[in-house]
């Protein structure tokens, strides 16, 4: 088993943990963290799978670099929205759906 494959498998585990966290946790800040965990897992899968053969592939690396910067911006946007929500009604959770 090459090290690239180990990275990819770690990425899968991170992604699964993040998606479970997204569904289970109600606090929005933790949900944003779980979302970031999912993103990190996806990046690890991309980079790890691409270097299974031993040599790193520059194309997924460039894509992941782009993705990381976009993920940072998306996180900042989510935090801004969360702060606005907290300012407006003091809540840090989304309202629950009643017929659930």
């Amino acid at each position: 088993m090459s090290s690239g494959l180990i990275f990819a498998i770690t990425g899968v585990v991170l992604f699964a943990m993040g998606s479970a966290g997204m569904l289970l946790v109600a606090h929005l800040l933790r949900r944003i963290l779980a979302f970031n965990l999912m993103g990190s897992g996806a990046f690890l899968i991309l980079v790890g799978l691409a270097q299974r053969g031993g040599t790193p592939d520059p194309v997924p690396q460039a894509m992941v670099l782009t993705g990381i910067v976009v993920a940072v911006a998306a996180t900042a946007l989510a935090l801004a929205l969360l702060r606005k929500l907290h300012t407006l009604n003091g809540r840090t959770e989304l309202p629950r759906v009643e017929d659930d």
Binding site: V12, V13, M17
Partner: peptide, 12 residues
Amino acid sequence: AAAFAATMIAAL
């Protein structure tokens, strides 16, 4: 989530 991870790892 565990089933998803197991399936993905098997596929990888």
